[in-house]
Write a protein that binds this DNA or RNA. Structure first.
Lengths: 150, 150
DNA sequence: GCGAATATGTTTCCTAGTCAACTATGATCG
DNA sequence: CGATCATAGTTGACTAGGAAACATATTCGC
């Protein structure tokens, strides 16, 4: 083996390549709807968790509260979500989908479904299952599922 | 099935979670050596391709030339690489490791090896092989290996 | 009940990358 | 040869996110 092993040899590196490719492809598809991948993720997270607080959402989405703050700002400006103050705790806010946002989610969800299906279609059903299983093991063992997505 | 399928259900989503986790862990480890993940990737790419042009490197690393330009700027400022003009074609430049940079690569390579091994150690050898195989299929079928890393 | 610790969001500064405009140089073709 | 076209690299405007400082607001301990 070489002293400096091939960068390609790292599984983490392969993972990053593939992950970037999926995301990038999806980014192109949702761009037509005027949203970014991160924005879609937030809209999706709000669907079903309406009225959640920014910090809870940060936990759920695996992002910092600063990032959520800015993301929410952008979505509010686009009229897709609404921010309201909490009367009980004046520090707290509530994030929820606007009606325009709520209408957009199913459309984007369909895009996401299609994108995923198309990208992984080059694998057999068995391989797809294998991949998902292995990823799930990694997620569990590394405690990555801090987010109770549903 | 729900009208809006679970975001967790998308394989691309799982992939992104795991990929981010590996990268982030590695980022923490190389931070002690004063470099970022992107900087390490460039140093590693230069090792063995000394004197490569910025645009060739962009192709190899799957980044835009603008990104390479800025990355090179940072590394040059840290004294880890050197930029020299090309006498034949006054447009072209050559990037190469400085001696300090060359000394740093093996150290970082060892860190990368360890990080990868540790992260995927929760999988059996067979599972690791499976994962790599599947990722390689995805990379091949989607034409992602534009980069002749070696 | 009042001071200290804690929680919530926002803001600022930084890294990181894309895209597109731009500059400078080189190549091609009439 | 010279106009046009192509290529190399840099730069600026922008999106995106993390880390930490910050301003409020709340709660806890005494």
């Amino acid at each position: 083996m070489a002293a400096v092993s091939d960068l390609n040899a790292h599984t983490g590196y392969l993972l990053r390549m593939v992950s970037n490719a999926v995301s990038q492809e999806f980014a192109g598809k949702v761009a037509g709807d005027g949203v970014t991948v991160a924005e879609w993720a937030m809209l999706r997270s709000l669907y079903g968790s309406d009225g959640i607080s920014p910090s809870a959402l940060a936990l759920k989405m695996g992002m910092t509260k600063g990032a959520i703050s800015k993301l929410a700002e952008r979505l509010a400006k686009k009229g897709l979500i609404e921010r309201t103050g909490n009367p009980d705790d004046k520090r707290g806010h509530s994030l929820s989908l606007s009606s325009a946002g709520a209408r957009k989610v199913p459309v984007l969800a369909r895009l996401a479904d299609n994108n995923d299906a198309a990208f992984f279609a080059v694998l057999s059903n068995q391989e797809q299952g294998h991949l998902r299983g292995i990823l799930q093991v990694l997620i569990d063992r590394h405690g990555l599922s801090t987010m109770p997505v549903d």
